[in-house]
């Protein structure tokens, strides 16, 4: 039953986040700082992971095609579908739950432990808005990261399959273009926006309401990662059922 308490408190937190706004001149700087920490700071890990996983998807597909009747463009097609539909939006989001989520929980949690949040509240600052709103706004740029992941994932697949001799350049590119549905990209971006909101708010919740000291900050980061991942998987399932089935 405790889960209902947390769900209720989470939604109250969201409500408080969008009330009593911090001065724009202050908020603007916080948003820029968060974009730097959460988005710009994640570009390299996203690029690295996407390129290599895209390559692995292409190689695995090639290695599992035994029938000569299967067309050569299947590797490109399978890589595109895997990367655009699942790998880029979902797997990258789970990786980001580890990277960005832990950062958010530990930074807010440390502020809680060192009474910095109490200091904000005593001053009359809406600490929810001051701390969480800039994170939500900065993660509106999250689709940019996912676009990069899609592009580099497919590029990784192309490089690995063509240069390792699993496919020709022509076949791979033909596979990428085969049966392309714009709605699949729309579906991926709908998921991305939802995951961005989850990535900003669930780790914030775990940091904001943590109790204890330094050890508990570590535990909160851990729990935050687990719950963010679980919610991402559940939302992925629900959205896929709603939009693709």
């Amino acid at each position: 039953m405790r889960i209902f308490f947390h769900i209720g408190r989470y939604f109250l937190m969201i409500n408080y986040t969008f009330t009593k706004f911090t001065k724009w001149s202050v908020l603007k700087k916080l948003i820029i700082q968060e974009i730097d920490d959460l988005i710009i700071g994640s570009i390299w890990i996203v690029a690295f992971m996407s390129f290599l996983v895209g390559g692995v998807v292409a190689i695995q597909t090639a290695l599992n095609i035994e029938s000569p009747f299967l067309p050569g463009n299947l590797i490109g097609f399978a890589t595109r579908q895997s990367v655009v539909l699942e790998f880029a939006p979902t797997l990258i989001s789970i990786i980001m739950a580890g990277k960005v989520g832990s950062f958010i929980t530990s930074s807010i949690g440390t502020m809680r432990v060192t009474e910095q949040i109490d200091a904000l509240e005593v001053m009359g600052v809406n600490s929810f808005n001051y701390l969480i709103f800039p994170k939500i706004i900065s993660l509106l740029l999250y689709p940019f990261l996912i676009t990069l992941a899609m592009f580099l994932g497919i590029l990784g697949g192309y490089v690995c399959s063509v240069y390792a001799g699993f496919s020709t350049s022509f076949d791979f590119i033909q596979g990428i273009q085969l049966d392309f549905k714009v709605f699949h990209v729309v579906y991926a971006y709908i998921k991305t926006i939802l995951f961005a909101f989850i990535l900003a708010t669930i780790p914030s919740y775990h940091g904001f309401f943590m109790k204890g000291g330094a050890l508990e900050v570590g535990k909160a980061s851990n729990i935050s990662f687990v719950w963010t991942s679980i919610v991402i998987i559940i939302i992925n399932f629900v959205v896929t059922q709603l939009l693709l089935s």
Binding site: Q33, T110, T114, E115, Q116, D118, A119, V122, M123, G124
Partner: peptide, 20 residues
Amino acid sequence: MSNLRKQIGMVFQGSALFDS
């Protein structure tokens, strides 16, 4: 409450300065 808060100053045990 909002007006009252602006009239209150607080020194915390651990200073509670903003690290960043």
